[in-house]
Design a protein around this nucleic acid. Sequence first.
DNA 1: TCAAATCATTCACGGCGTAAATGATTCCGG
DNA 2: CCGGAATCATTTACGCCGTGAATGATTTGA
Lengths: 151, 151
Amino acid sequence: MLVMTDADPSPLLGTSAFRLRVVGAVVTERFAAEIAGYDLKPKHVGVLALLASAPATSQLDLARTMGVAPSLIVRIADHLERIGAVERVRDPADRRRQALRLTPRGTELLAACTRLSRSMERDLLAGLSAPDRASFRTALARVATNLDLPS
Amino acid sequence: MLVMTDADPSPLLGTSAFRLRVVGAVVTERFAAEIAGYDLKPKHVGVLALLASAPATSQLDLARTMGVAPSLIVRIADHLERIGAVERVRDPADRRRQALRLTPRGTELLAACTRLSRSMERDLLAGLSAPDRASFRTALARVATNLDLPS
DNA sequence: TCAAATCATTCACGGCGTAAATGATTCCGG
DNA sequence: CCGGAATCATTTACGCCGTGAATGATTTGA
């Protein structure tokens, strides 16, 4: 007869929900450390990425898709403008709206962050076979949609 | 000849490293909202889980494994003690050390959080086949070890 | 035309996490 | 065995991030 091993004293640590939390936090932390040299923080990069996929987005739209307060977007835009990554453009059709537009420097910074993110991804998935990596990516995308996230 | 489709205007959003970041953040946010009724925050639950798998751990050890400052553990322990989830016990062999021990109430709270985490996991992995869920779990565990996280 | 809604911005605030200083205890070299 | 250095917990002060509540400018619609 098989010996009944003791139950894991804290099954919580093994749940995927928990692991996703701590993995996400650690990845963010390392990403933040690597982009610090560009005078960027993760949310700045998020804005740059959104601007690349939807040019000239208003600040309020950015706030909504990122799930943060509009006042926070103002500060992020201020900083991005200060380092020359974006410029504010008043919408001529509705002069209340401030659209943000990537500058060449912003595109450049985004490209650097993209390379960085790809490099991190290679490290994260190291040791998995190519098909395993692929199915992990699609499963993760599914998890994202289950959370009502874009894509 | 195949038409060359335009490149994704921001491939960054599609990288697994980026998705892990935002998925982790959203999961943490929802987890936090659900445990708020117990007067708990995610880090409190982390301490409870560590205490379940390694009873009577010193506060400094907790700080090290969680990667936070010892002064933060003090505040977390204060709060957990106040709501009756843990008790402080001085190590008789080294009276500088404060070990934390789960109370019955702490075990109870941890069990509730564990159920919650399992329930969230079911929602996150909804729409994946059983083998897909299994391989996602093992791949995620691999990612965790690639980040030097405990298993 | 004017009141209500919308957008950007500023401001003050709360909360999390850190580093430094303090005190108690333990360790160790001479 | 003794005194200085290291270790652990705690307190305190500080910075930073994110929010919500004004404020002002502009647009909408009745």
